[in-house]
Computed example of a mutant assay.
Amino acid sequence: MVKDELFAHQQTLQRVIDTLTGDIETACQMVVTAVKADNMIFLAGNGGSAADAQHIAAEFTGRFVKERRPLRGIALSTDTSAITAIANDYGYDQVFARQLEGLARPGDLFIGISTSGNSQGVINAFISAKKMGCITLGLSGRDGGKMNSVCDLNIVIPTEVTSRIQEMHILIGHILCKAVDDMF
């Protein structure tokens, strides 16, 4: 069982290497550009994707590997008062969009994470981010879902297996952080 899981991970990683390296390099440039301009990096997702968003945001405000100044990054899944108030008053599908409408500025970067690419709350956040003049980056899986039409770039992990998608999302998140570290 252990070797089967490791082999499945390895197969997914090989597909990512074979098909997504260029997109990941573009995503790195998007993040580097935002950091150089001192723009905010917002991240959002639900469930495991919320955990990934929080993890990546922490790498920006804390550090990844290299000692450097803290960077402007925040996961929109961390403010329980905002989430519960917005969900109560506007519906859960608005929790990320409403926060972006209050916090984002033109040139900021929004990274939305959804394994299916169809999380309505994340989709609505992309729509709001675009209206606010933000750059948008998606991390999804399967066929990319609705995120394909609402992101500047949607990196679609080529598998149907949620755990493999999530493993690649956090790997890509770490690659984005390495690109930032390389700036300093």
Score class of each variant (00 low, 15 high):
residue 178 K to E: 14
residue 21 T to Q: 10
residue 49 S to Y: 02
residue 17 I to D: 10
residue 107 G to K: 10
residue 6 L to V: 13
residue 145 G to N: 00
residue 120 Q to E: 15
residue 134 C to M: 08
residue 129 A to S: 12
residue 180 V to H: 08
residue 89 D to E: 12
residue 87 A to M: 04
residue 47 G to N: 02
residue 54 Q to G: 11
residue 79 D to Y: 06
residue 124 N to R: 14
residue 87 A to T: 11
residue 51 A to K: 02
residue 94 Q to V: 03
residue 123 I to Y: 09
residue 148 N to K: 08
residue 41 I to V: 10
residue 88 N to A: 09
residue 71 L to Y: 03
residue 99 Q to A: 15
residue 66 K to P: 04
residue 65 V to F: 03
residue 175 I to K: 11
residue 122 V to Y: 02
residue 8 A to K: 12
residue 116 S to T: 15
residue 178 K to H: 14
residue 91 G to L: 15
residue 129 A to H: 12
residue 56 I to N: 00
residue 15 R to Y: 05
residue 17 I to H: 06
residue 3 K to C: 06
residue 105 R to D: 14
residue 38 D to K: 10
residue 2 V to M: 13
residue 47 G to L: 11
residue 25 E to W: 00
residue 87 A to F: 03
residue 132 M to L: 03
residue 73 G to D: 02
residue 103 L to D: 03
residue 141 G to V: 01
residue 15 R to P: 02
residue 40 M to F: 01
residue 41 I to K: 08
residue 86 I to F: 03
residue 110 F to M: 10
residue 51 A to G: 11
residue 45 G to Y: 01
residue 174 H to V: 07
residue 175 I to E: 02
residue 37 A to K: 10
residue 84 T to W: 05
residue 112 G to A: 12
residue 176 L to D: 13
residue 126 F to P: 12
residue 46 N to H: 07
residue 170 I to K: 12
residue 66 K to W: 07
residue 148 N to D: 10
residue 63 R to E: 12
residue 100 L to T: 10
residue 15 R to N: 09
residue 56 I to V: 12
residue 36 K to R: 07
residue 4 D to V: 00
residue 31 V to E: 02
residue 104 A to S: 07
residue 142 R to S: 12
residue 14 Q to S: 09
residue 104 A to H: 01
residue 165 I to K: 06
residue 170 I to A: 08
residue 146 K to F: 01
residue 155 I to S: 05
residue 50 A to Q: 02
residue 84 T to Y: 05
residue 117 G to P: 14
residue 75 A to N: 05
residue 133 G to R: 04
residue 142 R to P: 00
residue 11 Q to E: 14
residue 117 G to D: 11
residue 77 S to A: 14
residue 28 C to F: 00
residue 98 R to K: 15
residue 92 Y to F: 13
residue 95 V to T: 10
residue 132 M to E: 11
residue 120 Q to C: 11
residue 180 V to W: 09
residue 89 D to Y: 04
residue 153 L to K: 13
residue 87 A to Y: 01
residue 123 I to G: 05
residue 24 I to T: 01
residue 107 G to W: 03
residue 121 G to V: 09
residue 44 A to E: 04
residue 173 G to R: 01
residue 81 S to R: 07
residue 133 G to K: 07
residue 180 V to G: 09
residue 76 L to F: 04
residue 96 F to L: 14
residue 57 A to E: 06
residue 128 S to I: 06
residue 3 K to D: 10
residue 101 E to Y: 02
residue 161 V to G: 05
residue 142 R to L: 11
residue 160 E to C: 00
residue 45 G to M: 07
residue 11 Q to I: 00
residue 79 D to P: 11
residue 148 N to T: 11
residue 146 K to L: 09
residue 64 F to R: 05
residue 70 P to R: 12
residue 41 I to Y: 00
residue 143 D to Q: 15
residue 120 Q to D: 15
residue 176 L to T: 10
residue 168 M to S: 14
residue 149 S to C: 05
residue 135 I to A: 07
residue 168 M to F: 06
residue 86 I to N: 08
residue 88 N to D: 14
residue 82 A to N: 11
residue 5 E to C: 09
residue 159 T to H: 02
residue 101 E to K: 08
